[in-house]
Design a protein around this nucleic acid. Sequence first.
RNA 1: GCUCCUGUAGUUCAAUGGAUAGAACAAAUCUCUCCUAAAGAUUAGAUACGAGUUCGAUUCUCGUCGGGAGUACCA
Length: 606
Amino acid sequence: MTIEQKIIDAVIDGVRALYGAELQPAQVQLQKTKKEFEGNLTVVVFPFVKMARKSPEATATELGEYLKNNAADVVAAYNVVKGFLNLVISQQAWIALLNDINKEEKFGFIEPTDDSPLVMIEYSSPNTNKPLHLGHMRNNLLGSSLARIVEANGNKVVKTNIVNDRGIHICKSMIAWQKWGDGATPESTGIKGDHLIGDFYVAFDKHYREECRQLAEQFMAEGMNEEAAKERAKQEAPLIKEAHEMLVKWEQNDPEVRSLWKMMNEWVYAGFDETYKRMGVSFDKIYYESDTYLEGKEKVMEGLEKGLFYRRDDGSVWANLEAEGLDEKLLLRSDGTSVYMTQDIGTAKLRFQDYPIDKMIYVVGNEQNYHFQVLSILLDKLGFKWGKDLVHFSYGMVELPNGKMKSREGTVVDSDELMDQMVNDAFEASKERTKQVDIPDDEARDIAEKVGMGALKYFILKVDARKNMLFNPEESIDFNGNTGPFIQYTYARIKSILRKAQEAGINIPESFEGEVELSEKEVELIQKLNGFTTALRQAGQDYSPSGIANYCYELTKEYNQFYHDFYILSETDEQKKLFRLLLSKNVAKVAQLGMGLLGIQMPERM
RNA sequence: GCUCCUGUAGUUCAAUGGAUAGAACAAAUCUCUCCUAAAGAUUAGAUACGAGUUCGAUUCUCGUCGGGAGUACCA
């Protein structure tokens, strides 16, 4: 039983004994004592004042006296400030807590069992016409981290990806390749497949805009006003017509188009795989829209028969969501083809066939908030039991210091380039510093990979996902402050101490049984370590990787202050030395666990 | 117009309804005989505005004002 639980139980007993009232555990507010006051944990007694019919001070004092007498193994002393009952926890209790933490290899984690709920998390969801950029990175990092956090809270997790592999966008790349590709392949050009396709997409757009410009001029010469001319040119440019024709052929299963489509998609997937691998992102099951969009149609027709939806005179199918406070929503076009919503319904159907899903989490940008509001209602109406409370894990945009990312203006930050840059910078930075330690080159590369990627991941994940965030490339490379490398650095130093201790023949005990007097900082660190469990539960509840990130920072920052005050290995008191080594070891362990949840690896030295 | 999200130091981020709102960066001043100075110590600096609920509000509710997104037979 943890210290907190013991106190909560004792408070409940105390309130019953003193005031004859029955409390629920959730009603006991227990928090860490503020630095300015004496004590470690604080009970907020305001909620009990009414039951006690006494002043907050008198209530707190009575309760404090009760705790001191009835939970003496934990509560060593108490003091009262207004309605706050500050408790001083006994040293033995802290040492016992550290021993408990040390015992558990995966402290704070809950292992999923067969009965655990199954949570499916969808993230990434790329289009196959261009390489991944910074916005996708936020998605992938949030999604994969979320999957780890949800799993660490005792759920079974299936990570899934829905690839948007069909549609007009991929046709554009295909047309461009046919026209100007000259048979280029990733092998022949040495260009990564997703980038190659992206280049053709850009080429299409360039030519298309040129055509539009010329056509619009022509229309204007014929007397059309500028706006109308531009609009018409957009529709009638030969290139866009060709792309539409190709899309129709694709839908009709034209063998030539299909085989080109397949080949080009394969290139893209090979490219994505590389990027995913480097990011440390993976999936248990990948769905393709080319497989699911027809399923959605079927499901919509089913709903139509049941009277959930209705058909308009032009043949289009709609859902009326006015009862739910929303608008009407199109589900099938008048020509019978499916829209985005239809595809998501189809994907949901296939997923439910494949897995007994209890909860579904979609990691998708906040521009889709409305879409998911609608999807939730539709899935519920169609009888998916997890539809109603599906989670749209919605995240904000990534902005750059000079504004938003616009692919046209070339202000998009490419994932691959960014990762290269981060790792290179980490490598250069470490070369500059490294004086005494001679690390072989290949290990230095390995460390730079961890540090550079750690810097990037941490920078993105520490921010509350809902908020738009500012990505400043220069600042992310600054390894000071609340950054991944700072945490990694602290970890590496602890590892260094532990190595030196081992070289000196010191064995760190599995359980500390000696006598030491704990300093305030040591108590705080133990408390902080223990707080990992709370942080993890909270993160699991709120779906917030940022909570874990900020916890890791606080822990290592706390340790850093400690580190500078104590020279552990030159400590002459053997018991104290052992205790501090054990404490350090657990700081490293918990930091590693926490950062692991963010997908960040810790270097043994750096 | 309507809907959703958001507003905290110069900047980037924190804070289960709890005490004097925390950090980091930038600025100023110190500190390397010591397990990794990618560090530490000190100083200065913020809840957009107005009501309401409460013993107590950055947090919850309602207005006002900023910022973002959505509101397509695009995905």
